[in-house]
Design a protein around this nucleic acid. Sequence first.
DNA 1: GGGCGTCTGTGAACTGGAACACATTGAACG
DNA 2: CGTTCAATGTGTTCCAGTTCACAGACGCCC
Lengths: 217, 217
Amino acid sequence: MLDKDFLDIPLSPELRSALMDLARPMCLSPRETLFDEHDDGDALYFVVGGRLELSMMAEDGRKLGLDVVSRGSFFGEIALLDPGPRTATATALEECDLRMLRRADLLQVLDRSPHLMVEVLRLIGIRMRDITDQMNEQILLPLPQKLARRLLRLATVTEGGPRCLRLSHSELADLVGASREAVSKALSSWKKQGYLHTGRGSIELLDEAGLRSIAGL
Amino acid sequence: MLDKDFLDIPLSPELRSALMDLARPMCLSPRETLFDEHDDGDALYFVVGGRLELSMMAEDGRKLGLDVVSRGSFFGEIALLDPGPRTATATALEECDLRMLRRADLLQVLDRSPHLMVEVLRLIGIRMRDITDQMNEQILLPLPQKLARRLLRLATVTEGGPRCLRLSHSELADLVGASREAVSKALSSWKKQGYLHTGRGSIELLDEAGLRSIAGL
DNA sequence: GGGCGTCTGTGAACTGGAACACATTGAACG
DNA sequence: CGTTCAATGTGTTCCAGTTCACAGACGCCC
């Protein structure tokens, strides 16, 4: 697995190699927590392998899953830009291979090659747009649509081949901010209609087009 | 009204004056739309005077108010970083005095004074943390808490003195993603309990501590 | 194989908040 | 002053989704 091509974000070769020279490799075991909400931090992480869950706790103890990230994405960018408390908890769902980029390292890169800054700014803008869109969906869409969209997103994040997601109904429920039961009901209804197939802890998408139409896309 | 002190964001004198030299003054009439969701844009705006509403449309036509901004804040930063479609609509609630900062101008500033970049990055980080927190509240809190928090936020945004907000129940409802009726009910209950006083199109906070406790703060 | 704990299906009751339906109240303007 | 139209107050009905309550089902480990 070559370091230099693990990012699926459109990144110039120059920025890519500049960051990679400085990013430090690290590993996580399954279920290990990389950082907790409110922890202080000043680093961003690129995911080279494995999957992590980003989540927040509500005051009442409910967990809200924000995202599942895997090879090709990054997370923790807020603390990179403004050192301070993390806004979410990052937990490894499985064995993970990461690259850590500390704030000082980023500043060093930008100091040496100021022209890269334009690109960095654009990347941040893209990320903000992404966050905003997701917030929207969370707030405005009814459960079935949120669920269908989440499944489709998770599918793109999965290595190609069989569109088979490995997560339980409860995990999925956290990710869409709904109850386990509601998710189960939606899934088993879709199963009957042939949109997907479910097993213990796994969901296989059979009819992505159908799901897309449920999702309103 | 001096230009140089209209921003209540912690900003170094140097960055402040660098940006102000390039930002172009502009005005809006009440109810005028500065830009629409999906419009292409590449500029950020500082608010010198007046108030604007930032909002998004749901697919079903419902309006979700994201924020009300006034003197001292800025908005439109996503398109500044990554020129492209706006994620929200910006509408003047009253006569507004703005300063427009285009992407090219920002890049010019940063090109001339690369050391300012560190500060810019931090500002963006702060904004992202802010957005994330708000998203959270929107999703996780029950209506009364969302409402109380929104009122308190709006109050800090208001010029000092009487904690009197000028907006209708419907506007408020859009801002917390609820129905006008639900907002009316909460408000009139709080009115009976002496937390606030309401008039036609205005809300005066009488007991901020009480509201803070409803808000769970 | 036989327990045991975690997932999964599916009902039934409950509830926050939306949608609908009016009555009322001002405030602005001729 | 009345007219008129938007802003409010309040009750009723409805519904998506939660909560509670079980009943399998599958995996796993001794």
